[in-house]
Nucleic acid binder design. Structure first.
Lengths: 102, 102
DNA sequence: GCTTACAGTAAGCTATGACTTACCTATTTA
DNA sequence: TAAATAGGTAAGTCATAGCTTACTGTAAGC
């Protein structure tokens, strides 16, 4: 979870990720339009890949990056497993404090 | 989203958050059992609060923190709005490359 | 009113993260 | 096989994040 969340914590990295969500792209194409250097984009992509958010494959001299569903799925699982627990706890607390407003 | 994701990116902060999911607690109680100082816990709680993940209220000299559903809801919305887009794109790409394996 | 308990704030230290430029590697193409 | 294109890696810089100790403030109990 740490890698996942910190990968998405960076605005530039989210921007890259959200751009990939609209279609796979090579590194150079991604770097165009971003206000940072191409090596910086490479480093961001490495972080996204380590988090399971993207995958890559070679295509000639280019390297195509695309969304990896695994990353999003992991977040969804964390959130779902969490959702009920947290909200149950929340509702319980609120009810308790409204029943017994000491 | 940046505040949200970076709040959850820190392991200690996630631990605090997940502990609060099981029930509201005062700061001191949270600090016990964590390997960091109480001020550090206060700072983490401030970050969680700024992200909309927790709320607090005074109770005598203690300050009780509990989960704020707004934070989790925001993540869910981001994920949902994203899920279809990303997966549609993913499926389209995969189909395209398997139909035309040039 | 004074002391104790609880918790936020300030200031300072250290590690890490996001960038840069320079370099190296690999694939295409002429 | 040499040149050009695409992109990962290394090294260094600067800002920020997470921690600490010291302090300040506020509510409760004697």
């Amino acid at each position: 979870m740490t890698y996942l969340f910190s990968a998405l914590a960076d605005p530039t990295r989210r921007q890259i990720f959200e751009r990939l969500a609209k279609g796979a792209q090579p590194v150079g194409k991604l770097a165009q339009g971003l206000p940072i250097s191409r090596p910086a984009v490479s480093q961001h992509l490495a972080a996204l890949k380590a988090a399971g958010l993207v995958t890559d494959h070679a295509e000639g001299t280019r390297r195509i990056y695309r969304i990896d569903p695994k990353g999003l799925a992991a977040i969804r699982i964390w959130l779902d497993q969490f959702w009920t627990e947290a909200l149950d706890g929340y509702v319980a607390e609120v009810e308790r404090s409204s029943e017994d407003p000491s």
